[in-house]
Design a protein around this nucleic acid. Sequence first.
RNA 1: GCUCGAGUGGCGGAAUUGGUAGACGCGCUGGAUUCAAAAUCCAGUUCUUUCGGGAGUGUGGGUUCGAUUCCCACCUCGAGUACCA
Length: 937
Amino acid sequence: MKYNFNEIEAKWQKYWSENQTFKAENNSDKPKFYALDMFPYPSGAGLHVGHPLGYIASDIYARYKRHKGFNVLHPMGYDSFGLPAEQYAIQTGQHPAVTTETNINRYREQLDKIGFSFDWSREVRTSNPDFYKWTQWIFIQLFNSWYDKSEEKAKDVTVLIEAFQKNGNNGIVAVCDEDTPAFTAAEWNGFTTAEKESILLKYRLTYLADTEVNWCPALGTVLANDEIVNGVSERGGYPVVRKKMTQWSMRIAAYAERLLQGLTQVDWPEPLKDIQRNWIGKSVGAQVRFKLMDHDAEIPVFTTRPDTIFGVSFMTLAPEHELVGKITTEAQKEAVAAYVEATAKRSERERMADVKTISGVFTGAFAEHPFTKEPIPVWIGDYVLAGYGTGAVMAVPCGDQRDFDFAKHFELPIPNIFKDTDITEQAFADKENTVIDNSDFLNGLDYKKATAKAIAELESIGQGAGKINYRLRDAVFSRQRYWGEPFPVYYVNGMPKMIEKEHLPIILPEVEKYLPTETGEPPLGNARVWAWDTNENKVVSNEMIDNETVFPLELNTMPGWAGSSWYFNRYMDAGNDSEFVAQRALEYWKDVDLYIGGSEHATGHLLYSRFWQKFLFDKGLVPVEEFAKKLINQGMILGTSAFVYRLENTNTFVSKGLIEGRSVQPIHADVSMVNASDELDVEAFRNWRPEYSDAEFQLEGGKYIVGREVEKMSKSKYNVVSPDDICKEYGADTLRMYEMFLGPLEQAKPWNTAGITGVYSFLKKLWKLYHNGDDFEVSDAKPSSESLKSLHKTIRKVEEDIDNFSFNTSVSTFMICVNELTAQKCNSRAILEPLAVLISPYAPHIAEELWQLLGHNESIATAPFPVFEAKYLVESTKTYPISFNGKMRFTLDLPADMGKEEIEKIVLEHEKTQAQLEGRAPKKVIVVPGKIVNVVG
RNA sequence: GCUCGAGUGGCGGAAUUGGUAGACGCGCUGGAUUCAAAAUCCAGUUCUUUCGGGAGUGUGGGUUCGAUUCCCACCUCGAGUACCA
């Protein structure tokens, strides 16, 4: 019988599905293991060979853990809300739900063919009302919570209200809006309901606020910071402008410190943690309040260098700063207004493009130095960002390069406050070697001491305090799109109200058009049935809105990261209708033991998920604060594009070797038309597109050779390789092993189908080991000691590799093992049976088939993993490398238990040693028993 | 600019705590089998060489009996970030 992978793979995929082989139990005496992949957005293009890389790795690990006796949860689902389906809907009128369903089916088919051990009974789809019901519910929990700084914990808003009733907000240390006023209990109790609501919004963990948002006109929606790359939208590359809008926001900044600290508790790649740390951007310093002269106002600034306070020679406000309008003098009004307007017009991108141009305008106003009482001119400049710190800086030109450049440009004074430094050319920013001078009570102190002293003095005069600042901003949570979770929110007199849990989900309404309305409302503004009836507790027609019992519903939808911020918890108890997850399921599964996915989610999904998890933890809804113990970033699989070279202004194509010195234009050719030797199928190319039908070719050696280049795998580059094609031609087991064989999981690497034959012939060789000619045949004879050695070497190495996620080296190890066993003509059951188990995580189909042929009636999936026994590897001799001055020159077989002195003696007496030394006497001989001999001389 | 990560044959890559550099696979070369091809099998394949050897892991230096591995400086590529006070 030949190795018929098509038949075998179809057979076992059917078997697994029918027998629910990989269904995980929520009740089990076995230890649990939760292996998770970042779930995909089901795009219309389907999967290419790069997508399953991480899934294969986690599948190998999951299968391995089953062999090791674990109860494994290995689920898969779809992040099925998203822009592409909506864009497609706008173009074609096709409902996004329909497109999404089609795409999901396609994905499922592709995934099934690769033989993953997913528990499909737990599949989730974020766009499914059964799922987003709970996304809406979590949103409500956030709305009903505030962050207590004194205990570093989210708490229920009812606790806050009680405190307000008793003591006002004095004594409440909370994360809230900057402009939250102070009030007494009497004042609170005197507020109207609307006033109370508006105050509470300043505390809620999700809140509605006028915020400067990143508005993307082309997409017609706002974007979060992490959705903008280089000043343009991540998706589509459209320009983004700043705009003030009323939006839902998430108070993620409240969790900045815990998000930072939590990183020390998880086993995630260090570079990924670094990205998160940078994004959170903690800086320690002080808040200093500068009194304005001639105004009853103050400018608060944040500085990391309070020690340099005597070096302040001017201040700079962001052009958007609220004080700019108030303090600008008559004489400067015109110049300031012009500058503010010019800045507002400049897009984020332009502003970033020229960071070298120094610009700014004097407001005419002066602040007063807190210690010297000297007047300090107040400027505005766009190098100060409105969104960071207080949107204002105290400029210390002698110690900060930007302040220095600004001062030089506008000829402002640059007083030097550092002892023995030269600041004629540039600022002195070296904290380590700082000695403060010309600074009154700070003179002679170093950076650390001066900072502490400055803060203490500022506190004593009531004009400042130590402060920690974070770069992490609250996250905008509204999107002006159709295909997302609707908010469970309706509005009474402009104040948001939550819909009760019992009435969820609030299902996405039907609309005729997926575009914004004519009045600029989000697409949900097109819905005719989109009002909340507070008597009936259901969604009713807009015509019934009377703002007494029927109210308008929220028109925005939630962003892409809403569903993905908690889906990993849902898998633990996916079908639950009455809870987001049953506590019992949470207690058993707790957290993800292994999470595999791309590092591009570092500042999006992986940060937001940690935030929600911490929130849910605070509320006692989940048992652990970090949802994923270990995380691995799989590297991207790149495509190998093929190029043909067209002579300019002709339809003649020149083979790669002949383009030298000629004026040619490289054009992507579809990689499916090119063979492993880079030869183009000329006929296929002519048939590819009408404009090439009469193409002429200049060949070399009768062949057209294409150029190759490694690029991202994408449709537009015609370098996409589909896993379906590979499965059809070589089988899923080959695909799985080859993807692993390509190189280390975490590294980016190019795909090259040519190399796959090596893995394919390996599987054929493996098959042959169990066969004699066409017949299955294994013997019950005692295995040879060589075979036992080959097997146990392999067990040890493979186990070690899986523990280290070094799957590429395992594949090599299997190859070596099969090569050795073939050479030994081994067909002993005692070797081949454990070998099948060993290989089954990697190549599960062939392993199942061989397992069955070996006489087993049950799936191999839970067969115990072979146990390594060192006794089979004990060697009586050791081949010593004999090196001279560190270079290996020859080897010598010596008894493994031979002592140092004896080895040295034998080596020195050896004729080759004499030849190497050429008569010189050895200065020194290093003998490391069991390792090496090194002769120095 | 700053912060990370990586540089090893024609290619993908391997090398345990510093101890035989190039495992394994592709490709290539030669051979067997075949009418021929595919498939399969065998041998070779870092460079260089006067066939004894010699050199060699981005470059230069250092530590060491011994460095792909550790340290310093530099070069190149990739990723993240973008005036963060």
